[in-house]
Simulated scan of single mutants.
Amino acid sequence: MSVTSIPHKPQQAKPKKSGFREWLDSVLFAVITATLIRWLIFSAFVIPTPSMENSLLVGDYLFVSRLHYGTTTPVTPLQVPLTHQSVWGTSIPSYLDWIQLPQYRLPGFTDVKRGDVVVFNLPVEHPEAYNKYSSVLPDLHPHPLDLRSNYIKRCVAIAGDKLEVRNGQVYVNKTAQKNPARMQSEYFMSTTTPVNEQNVFRKNGITDFSQFTETFNDSVASNDESGYIIKTTSALVEKLKAFDFVKRVEPIHTSKGLKEPYLFPETDSLYWNKDNYGPIVVPKEGVNVPLSPINVAIYGEVIKNYDGNDDIVIKDGKILQNGKMLTSYTFRQDYYFMMGDNRHNSADSRYWGFVPKDHIVGKAVFVWMSLDPDPVSFVNKIRWDRIFRIIE
């Protein structure tokens, strides 16, 4: 039996892509890859303010791990890739909030722990909250949950903790917490003569200082003393004490019982300040609290804005849902209390309240680049000693 071969149809060569098409494909692939990495694995951030000094400095560039706590699914899908709130270099919004999806969190390595340096979406950019806090944070604007401004602070208390600040020291569940190694506070430095600010302050990394005046705080010095108000670490305080022109260096704390304006919660019943704050219990999923007038002041915004409730009204120290007064409430998610390491120059949970778990972005892992915004010379622009520094 003979076999006849079937002739194959000659294959036509695929048309070669144009140079523009190849460039477009490469850009598209890069954007998709970068978007997935930024969403799933890690994101890069830069420190714009001194609220975390001296642990993190203005001009530090960070890698923030989204894997540690588990990345969250997008809530606002109609967004220009690789943007956050606006198109690069403009004030044009980079998203449309026509579609809002439910948020889910993928499994992570760990939960947020006390002492973690955490990046989160600022809760008070909620449409029902931002106006109230504009005196503390003047640039607030309302945004969807996943596109609220990224803030970085240290978690000092987790869900269920009872937090209190006494004379500047943080206590959690009645136990004094270990202070961050580079935590910065405010001090009065009494001197026998005016100092060379460049040699004494700037060379020692002290950028926030001012000459003392009696009107600043009558309690920190006697009438015949001169000196400086500085913000620095306890380690640098010991170094300053060794100078022969320094008489003493003392911490400045606001006295207990002296009420500080703009503090959270907004109520006339609590006389708290940044150095003497609380006690306050951080909301925990599944925990029920009675809704006394004080608890309404503390937890009212959580219940209204962040816990997934509808038709909540806060009026005359009471919480109404669908017109019915609530006498107790069970929280639907965990919350955290965040503070900056620059304890006297940080707009944190002491001023705007708790951070919901669904606002957590990731854990700050290390500094990959650091640029001094005000260098002595161009040679000193890069802070070489901070590159690849692990964040503690």
Rank of each mutant, 00 (worst) to 15 (best):
P7A: 14
W368K: 01
I99D: 08
I298F: 03
N288R: 15
A297W: 01
I387Q: 04
I382P: 03
V117H: 03
L240K: 01
Y299L: 07
Q85L: 03
K304F: 00
Q198A: 11
F45Y: 13
Q198E: 10
W88S: 13
V136M: 13
P74G: 00
D244L: 05
R114A: 10
K9S: 12
D116G: 06
S135C: 10
I32S: 07
S370M: 01
I391K: 05
T73R: 10
W98N: 09
T192I: 12
Q11S: 14
Q79E: 13
M183E: 10
D358F: 00
N223L: 12
V27N: 08
I390Q: 14
V282S: 00
D310W: 07
V281P: 01
P290M: 07
C155S: 10
A157E: 06
V124G: 06
I32W: 07
P81D: 12
Q211K: 14
E301P: 01
P373C: 11
S190R: 12
K16H: 06
Y104D: 09
S219H: 12
G300H: 01
V365T: 09
T4Q: 12
P180N: 12
H84C: 05
F212G: 02
Y262D: 09
L24G: 02
S219F: 13
K247Q: 11
S349Q: 03
Y133F: 15
R148T: 04
F42D: 05
V80L: 14
E53G: 05
T33C: 14
S377M: 02
P7C: 09
H141R: 15
V118Q: 07
R389S: 15
Y336M: 07
N345D: 11
W368G: 01
H68N: 11
F331S: 04
G19H: 08
S51F: 05
E250W: 00
A157M: 09
Q177C: 11
I37P: 08
K247T: 12
V296F: 03
Q103N: 12
S135T: 15
N288S: 14
L147V: 11
H143K: 13
L258M: 09
S328Q: 15
K17G: 00
P279R: 02
K363E: 02
K203V: 12
Y277D: 04
V313W: 01
K162F: 05
K256T: 02
D334H: 03
V124W: 04
Y133I: 00
L371H: 00
P102F: 09
V246E: 01
T193K: 15
M339H: 04
I360K: 00
I391D: 00
N345G: 06
P74K: 07
P81L: 08
I280G: 00
T90W: 05
G340T: 00
F216E: 06
Y306F: 12
D208K: 10
K162E: 14
P127G: 09
R248A: 04
H344C: 03
D374Q: 10
G70H: 04
